[in-house]
């Protein structure tokens, strides 16, 4: 189901009508995204296959550095089409080492190595292949985005089994937000309330300037 339906559900279940529609909408998007991040580790642990993704990469140039996909959370496997026992094979992951100075592999085609950094990985010798990784979930603002249903190639961020708890937790967050605004209003919201009252007063009087004049700061 698309994101817009969940925004509707959060607003409908919270029935917040004290603020403007646009503010409701933005808050709903925010709490749904917050709830998604809270659920991500649960969803990942429950069904990793839902978040498994793979992407081909081509042989890197000088420096042997390849950019990780932008939605990469964790690299699971780098596979290169190197003949060894007749099979495409996994290559070894090493940590904190210059892959170009590998004493063990010495650059042999059959024994490549790679190292994963923050947003790139180094591979030696340079090879083409496939990177298997776990995708992360983005901050969603597109209301037409498919959010939960697998099987349509849409890469939904939310595992369908967690749909109810995800949207219910978002409702809970929005209710908390509502309490903060209504029961413990900030200086800003107090001033906004005052501004609304002033606007009402302007509309209800035949001589609005008189109202304003009385509220203007006076010289000492």
């Amino acid at each position: 189901m698309v994101f817009e339906n969940y925004i509707w559900e959060v607003l409908e279940r919270n029935k917040i009508r004290v603020v403007t529609n646009s503010m409701d909408w933005g808050l709903a998007i925010q709490v749904l995204n917050e709830s998604a991040q809270v659920h991500y580790p649960h969803m990942l642990r429950a069904d990793k296959s839902f978040y498994q993704k793979s992407e081909p990469f081509s042989a890197p140039g000088a420096g042997n550095t390849v950019n990780l996909p932008s939605d990469c959370y964790k690299v699971e496997l780098v596979e290169v089409a190197v003949a060894r026992g007749g099979a495409a094979r996994k290559i070894d992951l090493i940590e904190f080492q210059d892959v170009n100075l590998n004493d063990y592999a010495t650059g042999a085609t059959n024994t490549p190595i790679y190292r994963v950094d923050k947003s790139t990985f180094d591979i030696f010798p340079a090879s083409s292949g496939t990177i298997h990784y776990l995708r992360t979930i983005p901050y969603v603002t597109d209301i037409a985005k498919e959010m939960t249903d697998p099987g349509v190639g849409a890469e939904p961020p939310i595992h369908w089994l967690f749909e109810e708890s995800w949207v219910t937790y978002a409702c809970k967050l929005l209710k908390q937000q509502h309490y903060r605004l209504s029961e413990n209003p900030s200086t800003v919201s107090q001033q906004l309330q005052g501004f609304e009252e002033a606007m009402e007063a302007v509309k209800n009087t035949a001589d609005p300037m008189q109202i304003y004049a009385s509220e203007l700061p006076q010289k000492a």
């Binding site: 990793k48 699971e76 496997l77 596979e79 026992g85 099979a87 996994k90 298997h132």
Partner: peptide, 16 residues
């Protein structure tokens, strides 16, 4: 299997 097991199924002589 999970994706990190692919290489094991492909290359291990005991588990090809």
């Amino acid at each position: 299997i999970q994706t990190q097991e692919i290489s094991h199924r492909k290359t291990s002589k005991m588990n090809l």
